[in-house]
Write a protein that binds this DNA or RNA. Structure first.
Lengths: 205, 205
DNA sequence: CCGTCGATACTGCATAGGGCAGTATCCGGT
DNA sequence: ACCGGATACTGCCCTATGCAGTATCGACGG
């Protein structure tokens, strides 16, 4: 690895610390767990383990299923040490990419109907994600987790994401109610901005 | 523009729909407003308006301050139409990149102290962002906004982000309390996973 | 026994995006 | 006359995404 390891490198390294995986398994696992807080395209997850091997943080063992080759990656002692060290480093602030919110923010270039649809879609998507997380939680309660010895860590993660999605669902409902009082997207009419804002600020702290 | 416009293209187009800007002003404005839901590096914001011009959605006018050149970009009628059309299209689901959460998720490869520090840093960062958003809200209440006719839209956005940060602050506190009960990062000891999870699920819905 | 389909197991390529360094100029204050 | 901060960008290298393409394997149906 000529260039220094990225957060993605350490995310993959973290998965290798749990057990050895083929790249294919690694991509599936990343979809299941990492997706929520470190989403990466499958394509990238095929490159990253190779970099870890170059850096001495992982080893690759070629496997065979009939004529089909596959590669099993495992963490090395160097890798464990590096991972441990990284866990003590300061983190980059979280970043959110939210296309729906871009549409809400520029809603005055479109119609009230478009805004309503955007808000509904945001709420529905959040509900879908909430349900997925909730069913993951229920599975864990039934002991159907892949790493039962790690449920304390997946629980705190789950709690965060459930909170986020729930906040989004409630916000989308509130925003729809507000927008319903507007004359057009560019003119809120008699809608009381100050009252709405006071409500927002009072609600928290 | 040979390749089709991206969400970033439309985000810039949205800003141009408000008024004309030099690229420099555009980057500052994007830092202020778009950063919260569509963060992009300054570098990218210098390229994007050129693409809009190529696509016929904006025009560039060269300006001069003494010997220093600058470019003022404005939206075209085609641009307004395109923006309006885009507002009616379905959006990509939101994605979150949260390095701190990667560290929490893999905390069992490190020490309890590292986990405590990570959770504290997450909470502090969320508090900082909350304060920044809150002061933005207070400015708006005092009528110090750059686009007073658009406060209804910035308010709904502000409400969302305040909610998110507040949820993060509360979660970081809760997670710290949970972690304080664990023996090590790999062993929660007598900590009751099921109780914690029921608490999480009961809390919402 | 053969075809198909979904899962496994990748690679190449074009483009978007990030981060950092570098190059200027302008303006206000000391 | 000089300095520092704001204005106004560009080049370069690397990360990351998305999509298409190439195979093989195993199960199931006809």
């Amino acid at each position: 690895m000529e260039s220094p390891p990225t957060t993605t490198s350490y995310a993959i390294l973290g998965l290798l610390a749990l057990r050895s995986w083929t790249t294919y398994e690694l991509t599936k696992q990343a979809q299941r767990s990492l997706r929520w807080f470190w989403p990466r395209a499958e394509r990238k997850l095929y490159d990253e383990p190779k970099r870890l091997v170059t850096a001495g943080m992982a080893t690759a063992v070629a496997a065979q299923t009939g004529r089909r080759r596959s590669t099993v990656y495992s963490i090395t002692e160097v890798g464990r040490r590096e991972l441990r060290r990284w866990l003590g480093e300061p983190s980059a602030p979280p970043t959110l990419e939210f296309e729906g919110m871009v549409k809400v923010f520029f809603a005055d270039s479109g119609s009230l109907e478009q805004l309503r649809d955007t808000l509904r879609a945001i709420g529905e998507e959040a509900q879908r994600r909430f349900d997925e997380l909730a069913s993951r939680a229920v599975e864990a309660l039934r002991g159907e987790s892949a790493f039962p010895e790690r449920i304390h860590l997946s629980h705190v993660g789950l709690a965060f994401h459930l909170e986020q999605e729930r906040a989004t669902i409630r916000w989308a409902e509130w925003a729809s109610e507000q927008a319903a009082q507007w004359t057009t997207t560019a003119d809120p009419g008699s809608w009381d901005a100050a009252a709405a804002l006071r409500h927002i600020i009072a609600e928290r702290l």
